[in-house]
Amino acid sequence: MKPLSFIRGNILLIITVLAVVVGVVVGVTCRQLAPSEEAIRLVKFPGELFLRMLRLLMLPLIMASMITGLGNLKGAAAGRMGLLALVYYMATTVVALVISLALVLAIKPGSNSRTITADISYAEEARTSGTDMVLDAIRNVFPDNIIGAAIQHTRTITTDGDKRLELINISSNDNGGVDHEFNITRNDPLLLKKTVAVGGVNIVGILTYCAVFGVFLSRIGKHGSVVLRFFNAINTITLHMVQLAMWFSPFGIMSLITGQLLSSDSLRETGEMLVLYIITELAGLLIHALLATPSLYLMITRSNPFRVLGAAGQALITAFATGSR
Rank of each mutant, 00 (worst) to 15 (best):
V212Q: 12
I168S: 11
F213G: 12
T185V: 06
A211M: 10
L207Y: 08
F213Y: 15
A197D: 13
S171G: 06
G205H: 07
L217Y: 10
T159E: 08
G177T: 03
N187I: 00
N175D: 08
V204S: 06
G200W: 06
T159H: 10
S218M: 06
Y209K: 07
L165N: 09
L165Q: 10
L207H: 06
N175V: 00
D174T: 02
G177I: 00
E181Q: 14
T195S: 11
T159S: 03
T185Q: 13
I203Q: 05
C210Y: 09
L217M: 14
N202M: 01
S172Q: 05
G176D: 12
L191P: 09
S171T: 01
I206F: 03
V215C: 10
F213W: 15
I170L: 09
T158I: 14
V198N: 05
D160F: 05
T208Y: 04
L191E: 15
G205A: 03
D160V: 05
A211C: 15
V178N: 13
N183R: 12
F213M: 15
K194H: 11
F213S: 11
D188N: 15
F182W: 08
K194N: 09
I220H: 11
G177H: 04
T195R: 14
L165C: 02
T158P: 01
D188G: 00
T208N: 07
L167M: 04
K193H: 15
D179C: 00
I220Y: 08
E166F: 00
L167Y: 08
A211V: 15
R219F: 09
V215K: 13
D174N: 13
L191I: 04
D162V: 02
T159I: 09
H180K: 06
A211P: 02
D188S: 13
N173K: 09
F213K: 15
T159R: 15
K194M: 04
P189Y: 09
N175T: 05
T185D: 07
N183H: 10
L167K: 10
V201C: 03
V215W: 12
R164V: 02
L217A: 11
S218P: 12
A197R: 14
T208V: 02
F182D: 12
L167H: 11
F182G: 06
I206L: 15
N202I: 01
L217P: 09
I206N: 03
L217D: 10
K194P: 03
S218L: 04
G199T: 08
G177Q: 08
N187K: 13
V198Q: 14
L192A: 08
T159F: 02
K193L: 02
V204K: 06
L167D: 11
G200I: 04
N183E: 12
A197H: 13
S218H: 03
N183I: 01
H180A: 02
D179Q: 07
L217K: 14
I220P: 05
I184D: 12
D160E: 09
I203D: 06
D160N: 08
V204T: 10
L192M: 07
S171A: 00
G205K: 11
G199K: 12
